[in-house]
Amino acid sequence: MNIQHKSSLLLVLILAFAISSGATAQTEPGTFTAKKGVYLEVGGSSGFYAINYSKIFHQKGKLKLNASAGFSIWPNRNIDSKTSWLPALPLEISALYGKSNHHLELGMGFTSYLNTSFDFDSETFETINKVVFDAFIPLRVGYRYQKPEGGFFFRFGYTPIVTFPVRAGKIWSFNPYWAGLSFGKSF
């Protein structure tokens, strides 16, 4: 386990406990009138970064259900490739639980993206660079600060990633060292 990953995970957990311990209890859960939002996410379900649109589609008491979709362009790090930017589309469903401004957020998503793959032609001894479809499943456990009447909101969370085999030669994998931070506006 890399010391940098341990430090990042520890920092996220400390921030989550610090913010949640300062939350004040209220007697009535706030009904959200600002159900839509636009935000920038760094890390998290987007992989690197994404611009997202979200909407609270159900609320009852302290429970709110939220769906979001985003878009990102990832740089292709291969110098020989003709494609320099590759798109990614993060989708996520999450449940917000809490009163008024402070919420526990639990969620799951699906992020599809294009990636490059190298094949080797055994007859010509040349490498073939292809653009291929890939995807992963991000999970989320985090904190979300959002006012019921709208305005600035932010969230952060622990977002481990499950990569699944989309094409031949790929295997299931689990990356437990991932987190995300989002800033935006609800309206």
Rank of each mutant, 00 (worst) to 15 (best):
I19Q: 11
F154V: 10
G22W: 14
N129R: 14
R155A: 06
P87C: 04
H103S: 04
A34M: 04
G109C: 07
A25Y: 08
K170P: 01
K64W: 07
H103D: 07
T124V: 02
F118I: 14
W85I: 03
G180W: 00
G157L: 09
T159W: 01
P29G: 11
G184W: 09
F187N: 12
T127Y: 14
I51M: 14
F71D: 10
S186D: 13
G151P: 04
R144E: 09
S54Q: 11
A179T: 04
I128W: 11
G151M: 01
K147L: 11
S46G: 15
Q4S: 13
F152I: 04
E126P: 04
H58L: 12
L11C: 12
S21V: 03
A25T: 01
E149I: 05
S68I: 02
Y158I: 02
V162W: 08
G44W: 03
T24A: 07
K60A: 12
R144M: 05
A34G: 03
S94C: 10
L91C: 03
Y113C: 04
V38Q: 09
F71A: 05
K36N: 15
A88T: 00
G180L: 01
F118N: 13
A135G: 07
Y39V: 00
H58K: 13
L9E: 12
G151D: 01
Q26I: 09
L104W: 15
T127E: 13
S68P: 05
Y145D: 10
G109Y: 01
